[in-house]
Design a protein around this nucleic acid. Structure first.
Lengths: 210, 210
DNA sequence: ACCTTTTCGTACCTCTAATTACATTAAGCA
DNA sequence: TGCTTAATGTAATTAGAGGTACGAAAAGGT
């Protein structure tokens, strides 16, 4: 609906929206969304503060846009794993692999911006909070759909679907926090494996054979 | 070692250390440690800012002292449950009951200050961080001791002790966050029951019969 | 009474955050 | 060559944080 009509008049735009979004994403992700100021982002991108405000409206607007970017970058791939047609145990292994990818090699910070934002939601603006709830709901729905599907195959433990979804969400959050607290990746893999394999019928709670 | 010699000279002290600690505790706990300023606490307790600085040295000092208070109030009772001589399943039920107590009736905020501080550790001062690590270590040690003990009774699943301890810590954190996100208490009980009962040999992953 | 000790609290300092007023610049169009 | 449009960025504003300088107050000792 809001297609930019590419106006031919006026001074040409030099502010690179994507560059700002990328820089802000990495800063928020690595330092925490509340520990990065608009000025920081301006300094990093060589843009001016009014430029950022013109583009995003406010701190809240920028954070909401960054969360949307993060959603595409890191949450949708998670949901894709859940929606892919594969065995329950394969999905779990894929989830664990995805969550515990080697971040340093990927040039990506430890932890999860979505998880961090949820922890600091109290101090985020209304747009960011709304987006946060939306992403949370979408993720929980994806978990529930996946669980329902697994149950229909008879692979899944006898746990209420909503409870199991919250459990999985909690494990994801826990893993992301362990990552940030410096717990070794192998250990995070073990904890996640322990937690998630428990959900599968016929699986022993052994350490994942990665 | 630092026993106050109760000096008989000089203007008598009017600042009530415990009152400040209690007020700060409740504010940090309910609003998050980073969203409460020294001025807020002064306003709540009727003390002056220099008074607080004289007593606690700095923001960091106050937060560290509050964490110590919180440790006595809410972490040691948790550790006591682990150290009590009872069956594995009884301990788990006790843990779940303790974590999911009705906070509104107790006049105590939702969630856990220790968990919140860990999430914001990056921005806390050195004393608070040190205390945070100390409490974390103490809690993990208590989990590990309890797990070892349970294993020796043959009640516990075949999971490495350190991994199981991190798992339990993650469940605690997850439950505290769900509480703060407004998940109904019954649901939190179910999720915790699902998670922790999985650790017990011979228990079915049913919803807790509370 | 006066000195010493200890605590008190007002008023200030310094910084940094978010946000904006406004003059300027760079384009197309007449 | 101007006029219009739409973007630009410097420099300010406002608010609130952590922290402190310093003179006054309240006690005991002499």
């Amino acid at each position: 609906m809001n297609e930019k009509p590419t106006p031919t008049r006026g001074r040409p735009k030099t502010l690179d929206r994507d560059q700002v979004l990328q820089a802000a994403l990495m800063e928020y992700w690595s330092k925490g969304p509340r520990d990065v100021s608009i000025s920081d982002i301006c300094g990093l991108t060589g843009t001016s503060k009014p430029g950022v405000y013109r583009e995003f409206g406010s701190d809240d607007g920028l954070k909401a846009s960054v969360l949307e970017t993060y959603h595409r970058l890191a949450i949708l791939p998670l949901i894709d794993i859940l929606e892919k047609d594969q065995s329950t145990i394969d999905a779990i292994d894929a989830l664990i692999s995805f969550m515990t990818q080697d971040r340093t090699n990927l040039g990506v910070p430890q932890g999860c911006l979505f998880v961090m934002m949820r922890a600091e939601a109290q101090q985020l603006g209304p747009s960011t909070c709304a987006k946060l709830h939306e992403v949370r709901r979408q993720l929980l729905d994806a978990y529930e759909a996946w669980i329902t599907c697994s149950k229909s195959r008879g692979d899944f433990a006898d746990i209420p679907t909503d409870v199991a979804a919250l459990f999985m969400d909690a494990q994801h959050g826990g893993a992301m926090r362990m990552q940030r607290e410096g717990v070794p990746n192998d250990t995070v893999v073990s904890v996640l494996g322990t937690a998630l394999r428990m959900l599968v019928l016929g699986e022993k709670p052994d350490v994942i054979t990665h």
